[in-house]
Amino acid sequence: MSLAIETEKLVKIYGNKKTMVKALNGIDMKVPKASVFGLFGPNGSGKTTLISILVGLLLPTSGSARVLGFDAARDSVEIRRRVSLLPEGFGFYDHMTALENLVFLATLDGVPPDQREERALEALEKVGLKDRANAKVSTFSRGMRQRLGVAQALLKDPELLIFDEPTVGIDPEGAAEFRNLVRRMNREGRTILLSTHLLYEVGMICTHAAIIREGRLLVQGSVDELYRSVREAKGFRYEIRVKPGSEMPLQEIRSMPGVIEITQRDNHVTVLTRNDIGGSLFSLVTRNPYKDIVESLTPIEPSWEEIYRFYQEEDKK
């Protein structure tokens, strides 16, 4: 597995001796190439600090970071040539139009003169702002500015895109469009790192995730791995939907190995087990008499709230 980002014992301390804040406290993060990596953490956990170090805006107090094979402290310009960033709290030149802003930024991105406008318009199109290309940014709403922020990350042809809380202030439709954009960019082989404090966002688009808290990573890995380890600790959950008016016999399920608890509510039966019994449950419900009673069987994945709570508790132990 080749890595787009690899950090080693990254530490960042802000302030002087008196006002010292340890924003990062030994981060070892590995972001695989071509992944959509969600960096989840509550406010003040160090997401922005970590991201800023990756693109060379901040220098680590100790430790190191390699991004696309370049050292973040030494070769940050090379990194920024290949990496697009949507920073936190960014802004645009209000007195210029959206297009003028993007053309200027494309210039600094090293886009050749004859392609700047074309690329800028493409980027505006991707975020749904093409019809406002010639409007001054001062007339933009917050969500439109955020979209423009996403657009400026699309000007160059980045191998890696880093988004710091990309969907703040964007309406649900816009957020969905953004997720589609991320999926599309990812299908083109680009790596995407996005920080968020919205758990559902991680679940919706990420292939990998890390949870950061107080400057430390509580866990990282592929989303499947994360699900599995939570399930192994907290149990597997299945939901059986029963046809209305039918009665579901439960004794056979109760006798299956590792079953902890069965709850029944209306026409839903939830089974919590210690082991993965998905296979046996499936063969059971496709047999008589269940065949005619059961409408569906679905394994329930742990929610991201659960995952987060789980790792937080693990961490406290």
Binding site: V55, L57, V77, E78, R80, R81, S84, L85, P87, E88, G89, F90, G91, F92, Y93, D94, L105, L108, D109, G110, G149, Q152
Partner: peptide, 11 residues
């Protein structure tokens, strides 16, 4: 205005 961040994220 936050434009410095946008500028400095360029190469």
């Amino acid at each position: 205005r936050g434009t410095l961040r946008i500028l400095l994220s360029r190469p």
